[in-house]
Design a protein around this nucleic acid. Structure first.
Lengths: 133, 133
DNA sequence: ACTAGGGCTTCCATCAACTGGAAGGTCAAC
DNA sequence: GTTGACCTTCCAGTTGATGGAAGCCCTAGT
């Protein structure tokens, strides 16, 4: 398979696949004309990568997951651990975003949003703490 | 004020402040020894930037907000609009993360997490759609 | 045989938003 | 006069790609 074929199969752009080769996530063969030649297993790996990334795993996580995926004797605990850590990061991020959202929603709500210059949003950004003289 | 002072006041690292100067967000003066000299207004701007960034506004948003902040005749509607757009982006992002979280939580829950190699997480990553031969 | 097109190759640059580090100038204190 | 903190610039690296240029390669059509 050439790169265009695995790109279509995996849903990843060819550019991304080349990048994944660069960073050592896949190691396609080369045919005599210099073209990358992907085996079935490479296509599987790329699809795996696409799905892991879609779940927000970092490239390094993906690298570990891929190694575990290829290791028939891995313990599921190792995988679960990576996933759980990622889950925690996601939870943390969600909480952070919700906090931001709440503050911002409050400001947006407080702002008249008309032609006048008075703007609680700017006022808040300008003076929240450390500036109360 | 030297950079260390505004850094302490604004809570931003000196590196970041230099970077903000690079990209034209602040324009401190220079004293004869080449050191940056920050006025009160610069310190205010940096604090403003710190808070805007903490709310997740992009640098370009910050640039616009800062311009509006400095424009005494701005219409609050302009500010509100930027904030509302940002709010939408946040909502979108939160929804996305929640979706990821749900999928991942499901997988983590399904995985025994023991010494055995069977792992529903890897199985799912490996075969979800496009692979049912 | 020639040409047009599409696909493939490499390499280099760019994005966001910093951050780290090296090499070196400056300043206040002891 | 020398330490040590603070300042300067510049270059590289981070994460995860993405865009583009220059240039092979291959197939189909004429």
């Amino acid at each position: 398979m050439n790169i265009g074929d695995v790109a279509a199969l995996s849903g990843l752009p060819a550019k991304t696949i080349r990048y994944y080769e660069d960073i050592g996530l896949v190691k396609p063969l080369r045919s005599s004309n210099g073209y990358r030649t992907f085996r079935e297993s490479d296509a599987h790996k790329l699809a795996f990568l696409g799905r892991s990334r879609a779940l927000g795993f970092s490239i390094e996580d993906c690298r570990n997951l891929l190694a575990l995926y290829e290791d028939e004797k891995r313990a599921s605990a190792e995988v679960k651990d990576i996933a759980k850590q990622h889950l925690e990061r996601i939870d943390h991020k969600i909480a952070e975003m919700k906090q931001m959202r709440a503050t911002l929603a409050h400001l947006v709500h407080a702002c008249a949003g008309d032609h006048r210059p008075d703007c609680p949003i700017l006022a808040d950004l300008a003076t929240k703490q450390g500036d109360e003289d």
